[in-house]
């Protein structure tokens, strides 16, 4: 029971190195407060994120995944984030159809100068994940029922 009340969601963030990762850095250096629930992985571009990464993260027990890149039009590689947008959109919709709560798959555009926005996004996403609760998707069936 104590576990329940103390439960904190684990969020995996794939942050593009040119914008969102720098945005996260800025949030830190400008002492913006945001929940410590996110573990960040630096990726060259949001388009580096194969849907496989997202699903694997859920399989490994992360409660949610956030992919964040440069704003449309600002991708360092010009069109990477447009392609990422298509891929993330179908991944989210498809997983939702399969029964994955949509809150678990999140995406945002955060530029290098948007430290404040980064903090907001992480706060909001963490809040969403607290609402949907722990990720039991890949737990063995018995476990899923007992809880």
């Amino acid at each position: 029971m104590t576990q329940q009340s103390e439960w904190e969601p684990k969020l995996l963030g794939f942050l593009c190195r040119w914008c969102s990762y720098a945005g996260a850095d800025l949030a830190g250096t400008s002492r913006k407060k945001y929940p410590a629930n996110i573990r960040a992985i630096k990726v060259p571009c949001s388009s580096r994120v194969d849907s496989l990464f997202i699903i694997k993260a859920l399989r490994l027990g992360f409660d949610g995944v956030l992919v964040s890149g440069c704003h449309p039009g600002d991708c360092h590689y010009l069109t990477g984030n447009y392609r990422a947008r298509r891929r993330i959109a179908i991944t989210k919709k498809f997983l939702e159809y399969l029964g994955v709560e949509p809150e678990r798959i999140q995406a945002s555009w955060v530029s290098a100068s948007e430290g404040g926005k980064f903090a907001e996004v992480v706060t909001e996403v963490t809040g969403d994940l607290k609402k949907v609760g722990p990720n039991q998707l890949f737990a063995e069936r018995k476990l899923a029922k007992e809880n």
């Binding site: 449309p72 039009g73 069109t79 447009y82 392609r83 947008r85 298509r86 891929r87 993330i88 959109a89 179908i90 989210k92 919709k93 999140q106 995406a107 945002s108 555009w109 996004v121 909001e124 996403v125």
Partner: peptide, 29 residues
């Protein structure tokens, strides 16, 4: 989402190499 039907038009750009400026934005923060 993308008004794309696979294998209908050989001149069409493949779904995942193409994009429109404005699409699916409601899924992004």
């Amino acid at each position: 989402l993308f008004q794309f039907k696979s294998g209908m038009d050989k001149e069409a750009q493949p779904l995942m190499t193409h994009y429109e400026q404005e699409e699916a934005e409601d899924l992004f923060r």
